[in-house]
Simulated assay, not measured.
Amino acid sequence: MGASSHVRFAFAALMASLMTVMGDKSASPTLPATFEVDLLFPRNETYAPSWLMPVVFAIQNPSLAVPLSASIQWSMWEGNSTRSPGHIGGGGFDVDGDVRTATSTPKNPYMLSGAVNTISYPDGVWTLAWYVQYNICGGPTHSENFTTVFTVSKSGKAIDLEAATSSDVCGAAQAQAFNITSPWGCGMLGPSPTTNPCAATIDSAAASSLSALARATGAICTSYSSNLTCLDPSPPPGQPSAANPRVVAASTLLTLLAALGALIHLA
């Protein structure tokens, strides 16, 4: 993997870390408790092309990611082949690392978001494949594989993160839950619990924050996405050009830019 790829991966992880909502001091849940990962967006629907098509996961009880060493691994491709020009391979969020390094306790549920550019493919079928990777008893393993198929079309509807988690559709979200019965050890997992994706919703404030941060930083892509626009804060004509300063604090953006500069220097 080249230096630019390392920067892209590190930048994506940095963006995920910045999604921690400051000031929530909720304690770790009393065991047994459920650790759950929900795919909030996209859904099996038809969307208009966007230079920032979001991929949004919610983590319920994020502190429990630490004993699991949990991460989310995902890939996305356009068309019928994972080798297509629109292929994005090796996407992921290091949930365990984000929780360990957060400067305050992550909000519950904890939102993780990336974005990809579908402008170059205004009409087509896309596939998002994902799973939860975790580590117990000395070896990595992963949950069942999930696949979501969605369509991009010029006649598709605009992206609406709030509507994607409304009460009438939230129960259909893809989700994986783990029953954590003890903090460590091979016997830490109990029988798989029933998932509850409706406990993770995107309200107007969260939707504005996700959209504003994406607009401020540009599309986030990975090493196989050479045909997409990556790390480009300049949108195409007619697209939003800047974050709303009332949503994203200047200090957050300065921290992000400083960190990105450091990553480029190290690479």
Rank of each mutant, 00 (worst) to 15 (best):
Tyr47Asp: 06
Ala48Val: 00
Ala48Pro: 02
Pro49Lys: 06
Pro49Met: 04
Ser50Tyr: 02
Trp51His: 14
Trp51Met: 14
Leu52Val: 03
Leu52Tyr: 01
Met53Trp: 04
Met53Cys: 10
Val56Cys: 00
Ile59His: 03
Ile59Pro: 00
Gln60Asp: 11
Gln60Thr: 12
Asn61Gln: 03
Asn61Gly: 02
Pro62Ile: 01
Pro62Tyr: 00
Leu64Ile: 00
Val66Pro: 01
Ala70Gly: 03
Ile72Trp: 03
Gln73Met: 13
Ser75Cys: 11
Met76Phe: 09
Gly79Ala: 11
Asn80Thr: 12
Asn80Trp: 08
Ser81Met: 05
Thr82Ala: 15
Thr82Met: 15
Arg83Lys: 14
Ser84Gln: 10
Ser84Tyr: 09
Ser84Met: 07
Pro85Phe: 08
Pro85Asn: 11
Pro85Cys: 13
His87Val: 15
Ile88Trp: 04
Gly89Lys: 04
Gly90Glu: 07
Gly91Asn: 06
Gly91Lys: 01
Gly91Glu: 03
Gly92Ala: 12
Gly92Phe: 09
Phe93Trp: 06
Asp94Gly: 04
Val95Asp: 02
Asp96His: 11
Asp96Trp: 05
Asp98Ser: 14
Asp98Leu: 13
Val99Ala: 00
Val99Asp: 02
Thr103Met: 15
Thr103Tyr: 11
Thr103Cys: 12
Asn108Tyr: 03
Asn108Gly: 04
Pro109Gly: 03
Met111Gln: 08
Ser113Val: 06
Gly114Ala: 12
Val116Asn: 01
Ile119Gly: 04
Pro122Ile: 05
Asp123Ile: 09
Gly124Leu: 05
Val125Ala: 11
Trp126Thr: 01
Trp126Ala: 03
Trp126His: 06
Leu128Asp: 04
Leu128Arg: 03
Ala129Gly: 10
Tyr131Lys: 15
Tyr131Glu: 15
Val132Ser: 04
Gln133Glu: 13
Gln133Ala: 13
Ile136Cys: 05
Cys137Phe: 09
Cys137Met: 11
Gly138Phe: 08
Gly138Asp: 09
Thr141Ser: 14
His142Asn: 13
Ser143Pro: 05
Ser143Leu: 06
Ser143Cys: 06
Ser143Phe: 05
Asn145Trp: 15
Phe146Thr: 06
Phe146Val: 07
Thr148Arg: 02
Lys154Asn: 12
Lys154Asp: 10
Ser155Lys: 06
Lys157Val: 13
Lys157Leu: 09
Ala158His: 08
Ile159Gly: 00
Leu161Gly: 00
Glu162Leu: 11
Glu162Asp: 10
Glu162Gly: 08
Glu162Tyr: 05
Ala163Tyr: 13
Ala164Phe: 09
Thr165Arg: 02
Thr165Asp: 07
Thr165Trp: 02
Asp168Glu: 10
